[in-house]
Design a binder for these strands. Structure first.
Lengths: 246, 246
DNA sequence: CGGGAGCTTGATGCCAATCAAATAGGGTGG
DNA sequence: CCACCCTATTTGATTGGCATCAAGCTCCCG
């Protein structure tokens, strides 16, 4: 093995350590000190990179691990009875996948990569054991699940009380905020999901997404080119997103 | 104080102890042994009965405790921005209220009693401390939150992919199942919530609820008299609830 | 460069919201 | 105990927003 290959390998290993991960302040170990961080780090498993369209989790499989997104993005879809799949969630770097599987011991939905994606696998039983002695970790785990609950409730409001335009505005603002928190521009970003995915997630037809995008561009709210998005007028977009006339 | 009053008082105290609560097998302490149960019991606070229409929790108040419903029922509503309130949840006996407040340290919605209701107050900091030494309790807490996540995801599917008829069918079936688990008849029960509450929860107008109820009765799926519900044909109702044509 | 998935645009129809009004119910005070 | 009032519920008529169906277009990607 050449020296440069060794370097690359070491760099990869290094890269997967929490203490050198620039996402650690957003992720599960957020409030651990150096020593505890190392203990947390030691239970994490490497996971091979996931190619676009590849499934990380299959709905109904036994629940064993949760996953933290390191890079890339994924979508979760739940198929219920004879119904069509519902896209319940998009996952961006530092977000945690699989928490809804704890209760039944089964993953409740399938999770598929939207682009080349890397994740950290965290075996749940070891996490649980570790959380016994690390109150901060336990607390952060609860906070993370609880936050997801909160977001789901907001999503329920979106789905039952907002118009199509408001839904898409909320979606863009939500993405914008998530990018901002991760240190990216909140005004310019690339969608890793298709229009169909967005429509499915927001409870709208693809055609509706397309039409609203056109309308938003006419109003100079956003500029869209393919999957490239620029938010031009975040004030009006925000105003639109929570207009009284729900 | 008369002897009978003393008896009643003792009986009330007795009644609030987990080990004599017939709901304990559905509630948080579900998997604790006698000894651990006592420790859990000791952190629970009495809470005065809540009259119909009275608020237990105000949205935005600091998060301090979670509550287990002992008898009666409640609704949670979330008010977002300038929008109208969204009814996110109904709580029946043994269900846990307030878990979505953990993440931000604030209650995310207001909770109001739908009838005369009693609850057990569980201070969260003490629960967290106790869960450090009781793995079963920790596990059950996580399972409970995770289950709520799961249910929210199903709700999202209902709101975005189901017709009005299917939504109401799902609602009845969900209630039926929850009553069954609690030892009540899954076919005859009394709704503690108004048509308006049901509509709000399902993302439908009151008038729509009323009309669908009429239709369901014509089809002999259910018999409804005021808030008294009898499920007459659970097979057809189930079939309707997850028809392919979403 | 060709094929195919993804996206856009147009025309039409339907489900459920909204507006309007009548009726039933249920709790309260006389 | 009953009449009354206010709220909850039902029923009808109309409207509108978004889905659906149908084509045409574009952009990747092999």
């Amino acid at each position: 093995m050449s020296s440069s290959a060794q370097d690359r390998r070491r760099s990869l290993l290094q890269e997967t350590r929490c203490d050198s991960c620039r996402l650690s302040s957003l992720c599960l170990p957020l409030s651990l000190d150096t020593n505890d961080l190392e203990r947390f780090d030691s239970i994490i498993r490497r996971h091979p990179p996931i190619k676009k369209g590849t499934r990380l989790i299959e709905q109904g499989d036994p629940f064993t691990s949760i996953y933290a997104v390191r890079s890339g993005s994924l979508k979760q879809t739940i198929t219920e009875g004879s119904g069509e799949a519902q896209l319940t969630n998009f996952f961006l770097p530092s977000e945690i996948i699989g928490l809804d599987g704890i209760s039944d011991g089964l993953y409740t939905g399938s999770v598929v990569a939207l682009e080349m994606t890397t994740v950290c696998e965290i075996p749940f039983d070891r996490l649980d054991t570790l959380s016994q002695t690390l109150p901060e970790l336990r607390s952060q785990l609860l906070r993370t699940i609880s936050k997801e609950l909160h977001q789901d409730r907001r999503m329920m409001q979106l789905l039952s009380r907002k118009t199509a335009d408001q839904r898409l505005a909320c979606f863009f603002l939500g993405l914008s905020d998530r990018f901002r928190r991760r240190g990216y521009s909140p005004f310019s970003f690339r969608l890793s999901m298709s229009r169909a995915d967005i429509g499915n997630h927001l409870g709208l037809a693809v055609e509706t997404i397309s039409r609203i995008l056109g309308r938003f561009q006419q109003q100079d709210l956003v500029a869209v080119s393919g999957r490239e998005v620029h938010i031009l007028n975040i004030n009006d977009l925000t105003r639109l997103a929570d207009t009284e006339t729900n």
